[in-house]
Computed example of a mutant assay.
Amino acid sequence: MGPTNEMVYIVDDDATIGEALSSLLRANGKRVRIFTSGREFLNFERQDDCACLILDLRMPGLNGLEVQRSISAEAGIPVIFITGRGDIQSTVTAMKEGAIDFLTKPVDEAALLASIERALELDRKLRKKTLEHANLLARYQSLTPREQQVLPLLVRGLLNKQAAGELGITEYTVQIHRGHIMRKMEADSFATLVKLASMLNLEPTNAS
């Protein structure tokens, strides 16, 4: 089962098309919300657990590509474009900006449903990755300033004695900091600690 607050958003200035797509998706177990303009969608405060956006390419006001750029600059959401008047340049631009698919009207139902499943799966993975990185950053920020100085030295491969020399502290103190770092970073091995540190792109800080 997917998240209880999983949502498919539809943005199309043609209300008839929006309702038709909504009926199709609801019949296939999807929760749907329809918007008739890009601005209306951008002003909407999302509270979903997982989502994707079916976006019309050509609309009055903000067109689909402009909406895509706006959401990419803020909180991204996988986009599926639909259009009755697509062109090669628009397709290339949309895909370069990260669109999942570019479908022409009348939309093939099977193709649309398959694209939606890919988009929702991608959003689940991206949200999981974002949450994991936030948790990792929180663990790193729980380190003391001195522990944050010790960590990059250790993952560079310096021995405790060498790290102590760079920081002007005793080897025993480095050993104590190392134990605290392993615990706070929830690393079950030094190899794991190195992997976690690489995900943070740490740079050595100046000793004080």
Rank of each mutant, 00 (worst) to 15 (best):
R156Q: 09
G76C: 08
P145F: 04
L53Q: 05
R146E: 12
R127Q: 10
K96A: 05
A111I: 03
A114R: 01
L112T: 01
L103W: 00
L55Q: 03
I116Q: 04
L126V: 03
P145D: 11
E109P: 15
M95S: 07
P106C: 03
G86H: 01
A114M: 08
T104K: 07
L55M: 08
L112F: 01
I54R: 07
L53W: 00
L122Q: 15
D101R: 02
I82P: 15
S115N: 02
L154H: 01
Q162L: 07
Q68R: 05
L112N: 09
E66I: 00
N135P: 05
V150P: 09
I54E: 10
E74G: 08
G86K: 00
T93P: 08
L55K: 07
Q149F: 04
E117T: 06
R127D: 10
G165N: 11
L113V: 00
R146I: 14
V79P: 15
S70F: 01
L131M: 10
F81C: 14
L137D: 13
I77P: 14
E117V: 10
L153P: 08
A99W: 02
E132S: 12
R146F: 08
L167R: 15
K125G: 07
F81Q: 12
Q162I: 13
D101L: 06
D108M: 01
S70Y: 05
G98L: 04
T83G: 10
K129C: 13
T144G: 03
K128I: 11
D108Y: 06
R127C: 03
T83I: 03
A111G: 09
G157S: 03
E121D: 15
N135G: 10
A119E: 03
N160E: 08
L62P: 14
L53G: 07
V92I: 12
A163L: 01
S72W: 02
A163V: 07
A110R: 11
A110C: 08
F81N: 13
I116F: 11
E97Y: 02
L153I: 13
R85D: 15
L57R: 05
D101F: 03
V67C: 06
E132D: 11
L62D: 12
G157C: 09
A99Q: 05
S72Y: 02
G84S: 06
K129M: 13
A111C: 07
Q149A: 12
L137M: 09
G157H: 06
Q149E: 11
E109L: 04
V79T: 12
R69G: 05
K129S: 15
L137E: 15
K161N: 09
L151R: 05
A94K: 07
I100P: 08
L159G: 15
L154G: 10
H133Q: 15
G76K: 03
R156E: 09
R139N: 09
L55D: 08
F102K: 05
E166Y: 15
P106T: 00
L65W: 01
K96P: 04
G84V: 03
N135I: 05
A111T: 07
P60Y: 00
L103R: 02
R127I: 00
L158F: 13
V155A: 14
E74V: 05
I80C: 13
G165F: 02
L151C: 10
I116W: 10
D87Q: 04
T91D: 05
I80N: 02
P145I: 11
